[in-house]
Design a protein around this nucleic acid. Structure first.
Lengths: 105, 105
DNA sequence: TGAACATATGATAAATTGTTCATATGAAAA
DNA sequence: TTTTCATATGAACAATTTATCATATGTTCA
């Protein structure tokens, strides 16, 4: 049996989930970030390589990598002086693939 | 045989596609718009109903509906005084579902 | 026809976001 | 142990985005 309070709570949780969802999609909603993700599609790269490939300066890329890492869309590991980034999981690819399907109609 | 020009062109098309992709994801990257899409998940609704459900004023909702329609994520049809909106296709649901999967880990 | 209702839209103000610049941190190599 | 290379970060400014307000448009009904 559901009380009114429970319904209220449920609605609240949904609200929070929707905010989280919006935050996630924000990560895909900027061309620099999408370029970075796309650039990592083929495999891991260090920051310099990403900068070269997407032709964007190091600071901007680092800032965006930080955001992507926060959203758990990329991982990083150190290799000597370099930090190597890679896609965190398959969802990244799936989400981008769905987006591509939509615009290619 | 690929000429240098063709490669350049190809790169250019990808660039444009990435911008389009980012624009698409922008639609999902705002809580008002995500609420609207979610509200239409169950079925078509007119503007007033959407406003009531997501507790947002009519002007803001209309502005966002316009953006969503531009992105071909919702459709609309007139019914007397009202305009009835609905999700444009299944991609909307798939994309949101993928997003939910990611954050629910 | 005109009053009432439903939605759209333009302009503005507020908030958010992204890039850049300068500099800090941290690892390697001389 | 100083210099160099790779990356991160804070602050400031610019650009973009969103909500709000006022009003316009279009439809129905008296």
């Amino acid at each position: 049996m559901h009380t009114h309070d429970e319904d209220y709570l449920l609605k609240d949780i949904q609200e929070e989930e929707l905010l989280d969802l919006a935050d996630l999609f924000k990560m895909f909603a900027d061309s620099t970030r999408i370029k970075i993700l796309y650039s990592l599609w083929a495999g891991e790269k260090n920051v310099t390589e990403i900068c070269d490939e997407i032709e964007m300066n190091q600071s901007a890329v680092s800032h965006q990598l930080k955001a992507l890492k926060n959203a758990k869309l990329v991982r990083s590991k150190r290799d000597g002086k370099a930090i190597i980034y890679s896609l965190a999981d398959e969802h990244v690819k799936t989400i981008i693939a769905m987006g591509k399907e939509h615009i290619e109609e």
